[in-house]
Structures are given as structure tokens and as C-alpha cells.
Design a protein around this nucleic acid. Sequence first.
RNA 1: GCAGGGGUGGCAGAGCUUGGUCAAAUGCGACGGGUUCAGGGCCCGCUUCCUUUAGUGGAUUCGUGGGUUCAAAUCCCUCCCCCUGCACCA
Length: 954
Amino acid sequence: MHTGVSIIDYNSIDRHWQEEWDRAKIFEANLSDKPPFMVTAAFPYVNAPHHIGHLRTYGTADLLARYKRMRGFNVLFPMGFHGTGTPILAFAKRIRENDAELINEFKIFHIPEEEIRKMTDPEYIVEYFAKEVENGMRRTGLSIDWRRKLVSIEPIFSKFIEWQFKVLDENGLLVRGDHPVGWCTNENNAVGSHDTRHDMEPEIEEQTAIKFKVEGEDASLACSTYRPETLFGVTNLFVKDPAIYALCTVNGEKVYLAKEAAKILKSQMDLEIQSEIPSSEILKKRCVNPLTGEAVPVLPGFFVRESMGTGIVMSVPAHAPFDYAAIQRLEQSGYPVHALPPKKVIDVQIGRSLSDVSEGEAKPSQTEVPSLAYLEILHTGPNAINDMLEFATKLQYREESHWGKMAVKGYEGMGEPEARERITKLLIDGNEAFKIYIIGNAPVVCRCGTEAIVKIIKGQWFLNYGDEKWKSAAREVFAKMDVKPDKLRKTFEAAIGWLNLRAVARAQGLGTKFPLDRNFMIESLSDSTIYMALYTFIHHIRGVDANKLIPEFFDYVLLGKGDAEAVSKATGIEYETVNRARESFSYWYRETSRHSGADLVFNHLTMYIFNHSIIFGKEYWPKHMVVNGSVLSEGEKMSKSLGNIIPLEEGIERYGADPIRIAVIAGADLYSDSEFSAAAVNGIKERIEYLNGIIDGIDNYQTSELKKVDYYLYSVLNRKVDSATRHMESLELRDASTEILYNSVIELKRYFKRGGANGIVIKDFVQSVVLMLQPFAPHVAEELWHNLGNGTLASLERWPALNKELIDEKAERLDNLVDEACEDIKRSLSLMAKKGNRAPKEIRLIVASDWKRDAANRLAETRKASDVIDAVSSGNGGVGKEKIADYVAKIAKRLNEVRRIDISQEEEFSSLKEAEDYIAKECGAKASVEKEGESDSQRADRSAPMKPSIEIRF
RNA sequence: GCAGGGGUGGCAGAGCUUGGUCAAAUGCGACGGGUUCAGGGCCCGCUUCCUUUAGUGGAUUCGUGGGUUCAAAUCCCUCCCCCUGCACCA
């Protein structure tokens, strides 16, 4: 008998089969007559070894590669490493500075100290981690053709990227312009999130600075605001007091700003500080609203910040709780305010998004001063704490911009966003205002300790993804692409529409020099949009001097321009090599599938589509794209700082490569995050080991004539093949693995419980399961395949074919009948037990007569009870008409539930009869089956087709 | 704010494209029982409420509030809430 479970030494079978694969070179893909299928995954950035989360993308890609191989494709799965950009440089610098935090992080991965010491050299970092990552991938059993390995900082790669940028430039897609960036004035460098403390991304927001002419002076106060449309409601201006302000020249005009603000804005515009002036002087001025012509006073505002915007704000008490509160507080303190009265400029139903307001429980007592009304419905007032005012501000802002209508002449009824746009344009065109940028999530602090500001970079190089021709080409590529999951289509369409200018040149970083200005480097996402094409032939040009890789070479290989002989002459590269490169590219690039994690949708993947659309011919456009979710550990994303990382190699050693593969790749739907847990891995191992146990003991089963259970198992097997294949085709990997691993084990157990024991049937079943398991668990599959007596490699076998003939719906229904009968018996028993009945002595099942089936079938067709009664009684001499009428009347009550039944009494009977022992065991009493018409049971009449009557004796 | 995704039973998570067979798959957890020492494992049952002296019948459920329909978790509209991205960062 089978043992059910046996222990597998995963690490040793992993090693063994990896060696076998290497020896047989089965993943080295060469041109052939078979249809090509090329799978690429976003190459990893090599600044650390991988953890099990990285396996999600690479494992999913590998799974597809392995599956497609089994489906008869010639599959190429290459891999490379990304080292471009600044992080690795920054890394080397931190190592040089002996950064304790960083060195601590490395301890998670057990990196030897002497290696860390060598990492002051950025190129060594790339070399070291590329090796580490490759090693991890090999140990995971990824079916990669390692001959094609490349690194993004090697000369061949750079030559290729230079060619790419030449093509982009020829298409007019490289443009220059000004661009705001987060900036550190101390290091004189742009700051991204990895340059800041707590990895904060500087969020750059646009504000409008509106000029209020000072009465009696040739100068203005510049107020910064997000809401120029509220200009109609300005009652005064606010400045910080005490504070230092400054008279500046901005583009030749005199403008007052807070001194701190002026220092920051210097990096955005032509601005000079002329003289300093205390806030007390500013407070004496009166200024003119450029839109209404009204003169308003300047007041001290408790909430004004000198470094935010211009350090001066306009006061709109009707629409800004802070402004209203500030004025109230000034009045309370006896300050001579003299501001204009609050003026409502936007109408909205106050508090409509709050439930207690919309239900009428809290209504403001007035609506003429909306900001006060907002404070009121929040049960507070002008003296509220700042957090409360902040909350009221957000609520009011949201409701007004969402539903508000302008209540000002010329703009009546207009929505706020539209009014804002128009008024802003009006002001800027009339030189009454100018744009400024601020850090929205300030303070963002650079690692050096300086607070970041916004700087406008002049003459920056951009890749113009906003170009309409380019966009429509990208849309065309995308329209023809197959995307998984399909629900991402809209997201991609949005991303294609949204992508605009992208700065491509950087002052520093590893990688390729920017061809149009060699003082700059190509930015690191822009150099990895079409590199997959390089995999198709890079192993053919490995020995070639990179300097020979002039544009003519790539023009020919990738675009088919010119001919091999001429190119060979022009480049000095051997004719054979040129030729082979072109052949390889044009073979492999016909059918490609691109894989990455969900985080790359809005940048890499979309740029990938764009770049392919403009550079390659239609036949080489990408065909498939697959986006996967990530892996969570204890509900959290894995991160070094959280310390919840499981390094890949450590995980493999602990759990074995295959259980981890299944847990990570098939633990959730393709696009959902999967939760990694030891419990899940154990569940997987249990099933694997159950299958292993069956195979170990398979010789104990004799081969004999097929019984009902056997037909049933064949039927179920083919159903599994069918649905597993469907799931694999649409990469519903969780469903596929459930079907293959979990459900097959359930079916096997059920088979044995029913008394199934036919050796050949079991073997057929298990063989198919093992093959379908191969893409998920290749090492285990090889081992089990081998243990089943096969001399071939499972990795090279064909995916099990569906044999539709063996799907026997009737067999399955008859089998289910047994389970349903048991369920009914048990339900009755438990109900009886509640009433105090003892254990049952005997269970009798009575199978309904054929005339009942006849009646049901007729009723299903004609739907007329009286006709059915006549027809059935005339054809069934032995049964009384009254009995028939009773039965028909009963089922006719639920006419629309009546279905055709094509299973006879005899079939139903023999199926149950064969399962008598099983039923007895399940229900805990002797069980017998008899036929209605031959039974003397009182309850025989109650039997219905597929629902035998049950009589229980106690 | 803009864009995309999402809100389902104790939790996780299907189903919603093609309305009914959905009180809602599956897994986990909890509870009860068995497996005749405990624990684990395994097996069985149960896990909205009521009802049923035998396998039953009914009510109320799928973020909120409306609507369409003989019929809605599933279609339409509204609002609320959550997640992700928003660019020079790989």
C-alpha cells in the first residue's frame, strides 16, 4: 500500500537536475524550424543579492518559458544585469565613507567583509552582485540561456544604446527645454528620493504668484496661491510677522517677497534681492487687487511661512478657514484690522460629502461665510487648533472644487477648475502673475542635511513622449498586443496618453554617454527600453571589438538596411557574424513576451512600447506583455529596513527551490501580491510528498480491468488537463497550480477511498500531473518523472494532451451521486441525532423507477402535467395512474427546476451498489441499495431520479 | 487634485465581461465530533438568523443611497472609503 507521504531532500534533487540540465545544455536556444518564443524579464539592478520577492517576476517568466517549451515552441529565455545610473555610484561612496547602516544591511545577505571593502569601486559592485544574482537564478532552476548574458555598462551595450539614440534623434524626438527638479543647494545636485533622508520623493507643485500693486509705490506684493479664482474674495493680504522681507527685481520688475522665499525662488527665475525690509513696514502698505481694483490692507497671519511660496498670501476669509480664523483672532486681540468684509465667490452645498450633514443632522446656521459654516458643521470655530483648521480647509477645498459653482459676474455657474484655468491664464497673459514651483511635501531634506528646493534646469535634454505621432504609433503597437492581466489595458492606455517629456541626460552615473552632449550620461530607464533585442545576437559578437559596432551594423541587423557584405566591409566584422546576427534577430524577435512587476507599468513598460513603435518594423513589435504583483512577507512589502527579507539562497536552502517557486509564483493571482509564509510552503510540500509517496509505492498496485472508479479518474484527469491548460494559457497561475497540485491530490485520495487500486490508471494519472507540474516545480517534476521509470527529461516533454473522449460526464455525475447520497444520509442522521436518536443500524437506499425519469423528461419538454400523466400511464402498465399523477403533480410544483435526466434506474442502481461498502464506512452503518418496484420499503415512493430515497433503521 | 485599481461572510480571496443554477468557490481560522493515551497529523461535520420529530422551508445579506428588471454581489447613476502612480527614481 502507498505510504502517502515521504520525505524529499529538495536541495540534493535541485543540484542534481540543475547539473543534468547544464550538461545537456537544454536551455541554450538556437535557430530551428520550430516557431520561436522569446521571454524576457526586466533585468535586475545589481546592488544587492536577490530575496525571494524577486522570484515573482523571474519565476513567472521562467514558468511561461517552460510551459511554451512543452507546447512545442523553440523558447529563448535570456538574462542580463542593470548597473546604470547613480545608485551604485552612491553606494560606492557610502562604502568609502564606511556607512554603518549600509554595511549592516549587507549582513542580511551574509556578504563577506573583504568583499564589502572592495566595493569602493562601483564596477566591482556590479560585477560582484551580478555574479550573486546569477547564482541565485541558477539555484532557482530558471531555464536561462546564459550564453547571452549582458551588462548595461559594458561597451557593446553602450554602442547599441548610442545607435538607439541616433535613431530617436533622427526622428526628431530629442528636444531641449527648461525643467523643474528637486535640488540641493549644498551639493549642487538634483535630488531624487534615494538622495533624501527617509527616501522622500520631492513633490514639485505649481503655484501662481499674483502681483498686488502697492499704493503709491512702483512695486508689488507677490502672493502665492493654489486658487487664483478666489481672487474676487480677497479682503486683505497676510504676511508673517515678525520676519524679514525683501524688495527684489523679478524679471526687471520690483516685487516684495519674504527674504527666505526670495532665496529659494532665485533658482527658478531671474531674481535679485535689492534691499531688506522688516515685516512691520510691509504691514503699513495697502495693495490693489489686480482683478477687482479694490485696495486691501496687509495683516499679520499666524500661519504664514516665510519659505513657502512667496511668503505672502492673499486672504479669502469666505473660502479659507485659516484666513477667517486669523482675522477673527486679530479682531479679538484688538488689532486694527480694516479688512474688507468676507465675500462669497463660490456656491456649494456645504458638507454634502459628510453623512450627518447630508442626512440633515447638522446644518450650518448660515451659508454666507462658507468657511465659518464648515467650521460650524465640524463643531468648532475660529479658535480651533491648526489640525482642525487644516481639516476644514481640505473639506471645503474638496467640496468647492468638486461641486462648487462660481458666483461672480462673468463666471456665474462655472465649475471651479475651469474658472481657475481661465483666471490664471488671464493673469499671466496680463503680466499680473507668474508661476512658481514649490516642494509640496516640504521639508524634504537631502542626505547632506540641506533642505531641498525647486530649481529650474535650463536647456535640459528630453525624450519627447508627448509627440503626437509617437503616441499614436505607441497606441498602434499596444492595440495589437496581448496583455496579462487584461484589466491593465486601460492603465496602459492612460499611461501612453500621460507620458510626456522625459529628461534623459544626467550629470553623473554609470552607463552610456549621451551622444549629443558627451558631458552627460543617458538616464537609466531610457537606456533599457529596447535592449532585449541585443540578446538575440549578442553571443555572436562577443569577440568583436566594440569600436567596430558602428551604426551601420545595427541598421542592418535590427532594421535590415543595406546588405551583409557591405556592412561587413564598412565595419570590419566578419561577414558570417553579421549575417548570423541578422538571422538571429529576425528569427527570435518575431514573438516576444515582456515581463515585469507592476511598478514598471507607468515608466519602463510604457517606454518599452513607445521605443519599439518608432524603432522597429511592425513584424518585430512586441506581442505579449505580462505584469505580475509582488511578494509580501507578514503582510508587508519586503524591505531591508523592515528586516523581513528572506534572501533567495537562504530560502532555497531552507525550503527547497520548488516549494518556494510555487509559493511565490502561484500563491496569488498574477497581478495580486502573494503572501509568503512557511505555512503555505508546508502545504505545498505536503502535496508534493503525497505524490512522491504514491509514486514510491506504485509497484504495489496491480493492473486489472477498468471499473467505474477508474473511468471516473480518467474523466477527471482529462478535465484537469483541460482546465489547467486554459489557466496556463491565460497565466492564471494560482488557479492552474490549484488544479494541478491540490485538486489532483484530492482526486487521488478520493479514488483510493472509493476502492480504486488499478496500477495503470494511477500511473497514467500521476504521469500527467507530474508533467503539468514541471513549469512550476521543475526539479521535483524531473525527479518524479525519473522515478516513474522514464529516461527522458521532463523539461523537454510535451504538455499532456487533452483526450476529450475520456471526459465522461455521466461517470462523473454517477460518482457525485454517491457523495450526494452520503451527504443526505449524514444530514438526516445529524437532524435525527438532535432529536435523541441512537446510532443507526442499517441504511437502505431505494433508486427511483424509470417511469419517474420518463415523467420528468416529458415534463421538461412539454411543461404540461396532464399530458405527461396520460402519456406515462399508457406506457407503464404496471404502475397505477394515481401514483403517477401524485408524482407528476409534486414535481410540477417546481416546473422550472425540472431537468432532463439521461441516467437510467439501472445505471444509478449499479453505481450506488458498487459503492455500498464506501457508503457504509462513511455513514457508520450497514448500507444496501435496492430498486423502487422491487423494494418493500415504506419510503420507496419518495425516491426521485438522482435522489434515492433513504430509509434508516435504528 | 489627476489617472488607474479596488471595497464580498471571522480573515484571505473567487465570482462580477455573458443578470437567475449565489447564503455566495477555495484556503485559513474558530467550534463540535472521530481516529478508541496526550499533542500533532489525518478524517467528518459546522461556522447570518429562524424553521424542520429524517435529506426541509423561509427571512435578511456582497461599502452607501437610488434606479433598470419578473429577477442584481452581478447592469446604470450617486456618494463615501481604501490602495497605487504622478516623472528624472531604479
